[in-house]
């Protein structure tokens, strides 16, 4: 509360003295748009990070959740914000790199100023104990041998999870039936109830059931193996290393932001993400910090967008 009072009084003071715009950024509250509803993975990560950023930047950060359209609604609305550094966008990769491929949206990667990525994790494919495969290689062989026989749950048609899986399936010429759900929780529920054959989604959601033996996770969509899932193969081990797709999160601004502010923010985000408390928090969700800034981040967005464009074209999902 104190923090906010100081921020408010600072804002009023500068308003009165009419100080130059960028000299003492930030001089008022920052609005952080999250293109997903409250309670999800992106939301909790961003809100937690915002708390640390508030201290580092010395201003308050107000969170605005705008869900819908797989993130496109929030992204489109955010795109129109002023690039003054007081409007930031905390998102996962899907609205930026996947959604523009499959939906007719008004924004592209150029509509944003990349500031910094924060954390990442892989998606995972799991089966139950009865499934006739116990390793990643056997799993893909079984799917390849029985085209159209197995159903896998995912986070929505044309979502990054589906494309991550299809990218692997295409490389191995596999046909499996995607069943879109509202999120990993819903997918898990249907997987545990035996309504679908394969769980596809985030690691942290399914992890407890790996420990009870109800889920047997066989493939992760990252190139490397995931330590928490010893039975799952990374794509490198399956000879598909170049088809890696991750779930990762980043903070961006509207296009045309002042470089000085971008630098200030990316420094602050870098410090915040590497804060031990935040790293520990990420670990509980099965995520690891990975900060890329500036051109590196822009390059990552571009290359992922290009890679997924191929997959979605092949699936007939592209606009």
């Amino acid at each position: 509360m104190n923090l906010k009072l100081t921020a408010v009084s600072a804002a009023i003071l500068t308003a009165v003295t009419a100080a130059p715009a960028f000299a003492d950024y930030p001089e008022r509250a920052i609005e952080l748009t999250i293109p997903a509803g409250a309670g999800g993975g992106t939301d909790t990560s961003a809100r937690r990070l915002a708390l640390i950023l508030e201290e580092l930047l010395g201003t308050s950060i107000a969170v605005l959740n705008i869900g819908g359209g797989g993130g496109s609604v929030g992204a489109s609305q955010f795109m129109q914000a002023d690039p003054d550094g007081y409007s930031l966008f905390a998102t996962w990769n899907s609205p930026l790199t996947t959604v523009p491929l499959v939906q007719n949206v008004a924004y592209s990667l150029d509509s944003f100023t990349p500031i910094a990525s924060t954390s990442e994790t892989a998606y995972v494919l799991c089966v139950d104990a009865e499934f006739p495969a116990t390793t990643g290689a056997e799993f893909l062989d079984e799917l390849a041998a029985n085209p159209g026989m197995y159903t896998y749950g995912n986070d929505g048609i044309g979502g990054t999870m589906q494309l991550a899986a299809e990218r692997i399936f295409q490389a191995r010429e596999i046909t499996a039936i995607p069943i879109p759900f509202g999120g990993a929780g819903e997918t898990l529920q249907n997987f545990l109830g035996g309504h679908i054959d394969i769980y596809g989604g985030s690691i942290s959601t399914v992890l407890p059931y790996v420990e009870t033996g109800e889920a047997n996770c066989l493939v992760v969509t990252s190139a490397a193996d995931v330590p928490a899932l010893p039975s799952a193969s990374g794509l490198e081990a399956l000879g598909l290393g170049e088809h890696e797709t991750l779930l990762w999160r980043a903070i961006l601004g509207p296009a045309g932001m002042d470089q000085a502010i971008v630098d200030q923010l990316s420094d602050a985000i870098q410090t915040a993400v590497n804060d031990p408390a935040y790293v520990e928090f990420l670990a509980t969700k099965g995520e690891v910090p990975n900060v890329l800034v500036g051109d590196d981040l822009a390059a990552r967005l571009q290359s992922e967008s290009d890679g997924l464009a191929e997959v979605s074209r092949a699936l007939g999902l592209s606009q």
């Binding site: 009419a18 008022r28 509250a29 609005e31 107000a62």
Partner: peptide, 19 residues
């Protein structure tokens, strides 16, 4: 609730349009 609401016109005018 700390909800961002449309900014007051007199605040914007006061800061000389700098914000």
């Amino acid at each position: 609730l700390e909800k961002p609401l449309p900014r007051e016109i007199w605040l914007t005018l006061g800061s000389g349009g700098g914000a």
